[in-house]
Design a protein around this nucleic acid. Structure first.
Length: 306
DNA sequence: AGTTGTCAAGCTAGT
DNA sequence: ACTAGCTTGACAACT
């Protein structure tokens, strides 16, 4: 098991997701920003490995406007060597990488234009992971998408669009259960037709499920990951107490997390902590996981998948 | 320096 | 009809 956090590090004083307004776009501004972001990504990864944090979600803002028509620069070529260097570091330290395109990236919209824009966005994410020369265990997670007033029709549209995607995208794409439209059961149903792996989000599952316990849920989604996909990925967060549904907690709740680890102890998986204080909670979680019997953190022996 | 309006993109649910 | 929320504030123009 690896433990990690998404996109932003709050202790090291640089950000890999610097961006700017479309109105202030210039070639130089773009190049400067990409340089900053890639350099900072390296620093974050170094901080992480120094602290045994070996799972990280790379921000979608790494290359601003990458899929926008305004972006004419061949950033793939211009920054090849920096990507290669980053990729070498990631592989050397066995860091697990994921990306999560934003809510505008949709496979199943009725409007073809929205799908075409989303496709560009998926290509951009794929290119980043390809330039890092990472294998198919580096994943891009998205939700199933909209309902459009016809859930089964929209699921079928997801399936047929997915099946026609290029292999480079398909080998990295995974779907995540959400807290409104498509729960775990829906995702499993799509998996049964497409073989797409299902990434499990614990908070979304708490909010919207079909009655599965945590253990039952793990039995279902862990089976959707093949060997080439790597360990199953899990997004973990807890409800901010007394707050609105779905709001992420400010910091890791020790009690809730220990219970989560105990309930899922027969399984091996990589865990992404979606918690506001980012790496602080990751550090806390690693400490707790080390103390908890039955969890073996990488580096070290990895227990076989049940 | 501090404040405030706005930001590429979509969808859903709640007001 | 409008807005908050999503994975997440922060850029940029103003005082």
């Amino acid at each position: 098991m690896r433990i990690g956090y998404p996109c932003i590090n709050l202790s090291i004083g640089c950000k890999a997701d610097r961006k700017f307004r479309l109105k202030s776009y210039s070639l130089q501004r773009l190049i400067n920003t990409i340089n900053n972001n890639l350099r900072c990504l390296k620093k974050i990864l170094e901080y992480n490995t120094d602290h045994s944090i070996l799972f990280f979600r790379i921000t979608s803002d790494l290359i601003p406007f990458a899929s926008h028509p305004i972006c004419k620069v061949n950033w793939q070529k211009k920054f090849t060597h920096i990507f290669e260097e980053l990729g070498t570091y990631i592989k050397k330290h066995e860091i697990r990488i994921s990306m999560h395109p934003n809510q505008f990236t949709l496979i199943n919209p009725i409007d073809q234009k929205i799908f075409r824009r989303s496709l560009k966005e998926l290509r951009y994410h794929t290119e980043v992971l390809d330039l890092l020369e990472l294998d198919s265990s580096a994943k891009i997670q998205i939700h199933v998408g909209g309902i459009y007033g016809d859930k089964s029709g929209s699921m079928n549209r997801f399936i047929s669009r997915y099946q026609k995607l290029e292999e480079t995208i398909k080998q990295r794409l995974v779907i995540e259960n959400d807290d409104r439209g498509y729960n775990l059961k829906d995702c499993i149903q799509i998996h049964n037709v497409t073989e797409i792996p299902v990434l499990f989000d614990s908070l979304h599952h708490e909010i919207k499920n079909s009655g599965e316990t945590l253990t039952e849920a793990f039995e279902l989604f862990t089976k959707t990951w093949r060997k080439k996909d790597g360990l199953p990925m899990v997004d973990y967060s807890a409800q901010q107490s007394e707050q609105k549904k779905g709001k992420h907690a400010e910091t890791l709740d020790t009690k809730h997390f220990k219970h989560f680890l105990r309930s899922t102890s027969p399984f091996d998986y990589d865990l992404m902590l979606e918690i506001k204080d980012k790496e602080q909670s990751a550090l806390k979680a690693i400490k707790i996981a080390k103390q908890t019997k039955g969890k073996q953190l990488i580096p070290g022996t990895i227990s076989d998948q049940p």
